[in-house]
């Protein structure tokens, strides 16, 4: 049996180059169109530069790995390059070699310049969507969703009900929900939309769009005190890693009391048809 695996006869250089070029084309041109088709967007969605770096980098690493897996492959890959670079050969080869040896450093130099030159574009930043919640919020419980005894008593008394019965509590929670809905429509709807999907009438004006509450990655994955923190302190209250300068979320703590905010939170889960994240129980 022949020892040499897959003797491509120098074709390896060609196939690896084609792979790299194909990957580049796919990432830059085909993927944006594909992504736009998937989400029914009108224009192709460009691939973010960071993602491109990861994917293309991995392709490059993969090519390097593949080429070096055996001595035969390595020589398959390297021999044409060596032959190309060795002095001598036909005048045609000399000309091509000269062009390549001049062009490659120039391209490299241009890329370096382009990367380092100051530009008027704001820098790429990584914005943490769910930064760490401050400690004092961790253990809070929603007053609207879990009203305390006195609250239920007061409500029952005010509405002629019999006392702190489960029905009274349910009625209180329902009343909180109604009030929360009204408050939501007045305060939150302009940005977050009537259906809590982040497409309110004002949403179009913001670069950083208002959160889509129907998306499982937003409020559905957060505990309620987290929302209290966010609504109360707004965009300004975000820590640096969450890019507070990008967020247009107002600081509702200046206008709304905590009680009102809890009611809004109760309502927005309902409007968005998601459940808040519950502390999990151990098995």
């Amino acid at each position: 049996m022949p020892e040499r695996p897959d003797d491509d006869g120098g074709k390896l250089l060609l196939t690896t180059s084609v792979t790299l070029i194909a990957m580049y084309v796919f990432l830059r041109f085909i993927f944006p169109t594909l992504a736009a088709w998937i989400v029914s967007a009108p224009d192709p969605l460009p691939i973010p530069g960071f993602a491109f770096l990861i994917y293309f980098g991995l392709t490059f690493v993969g090519v390097a790995i593949f080429v070096t897996t055996s001595d035969v492959r390595l020589s398959d890959f390297a021999t044409p390059i060596e032959r190309f670079l060795i002095p001598g050969g036909s005048s045609r080869r000399r000309q091509v070699r000269m062009v390549v040896l001049v062009a490659v450093p120039l391209i490299g130099a241009y890329n370096t310049y382009a990367a380092l030159a100051p530009s008027s574009e704001p820098p790429t930043e990584s914005r943490l969507q769910h930064p760490t919640i401050p400690g004092e919020f961790e253990k809070l419980e929603s007053e609207a969703r879990h009203p305390g005894e006195e609250a239920v008593h007061a409500f029952a008394a005010a509405n002629g009900l019999e006392g702190a019965t489960p029905e009274a509590k349910a009625a209180l929670i329902a009343a909180n929900m109604e009030e929360g809905r009204v408050l939501y429509m007045i305060n939150c709807r302009p940005c977050h939309g009537t259906k809590a999907d982040g497409v309110g009438p004002m949403a179009r004006g913001f670069r950083l769009k208002p959160a889509n509450f129907t998306d499982p990655g937003t409020i559905a994955t957060l505990v309620e005190p987290y929302l209290l923190w966010r609504v109360r302190t707004g965009g300004i209250g975000l820590p640096g890693v969450a890019a507070p300068w990008d967020s247009a979320m107002p600081r509702w703590g200046a206008d709304l009391s905590d009680e009102q905010i809890w009611k809004i939170i109760l309502a927005e889960y309902d409007i968005g048809a998601v459940e808040p994240r519950l502390p999990e129980t151990m098995e």
């Binding site: 790429t124 930043e125 990584s126 943490l128 975000l238 820590p239 640096g240 890693v241 890019a243 507070p244 300068w245």
Partner: peptide, 17 residues
């Protein structure tokens, strides 16, 4: 690199900006 992307200085308290 990752720390730079987040706009944090290496080492030091996480005060914003």
């Amino acid at each position: 690199w990752v720390t730079d992307l987040q706009g944090q200085k290496s080492g030091g308290s996480q005060l914003s900006g």
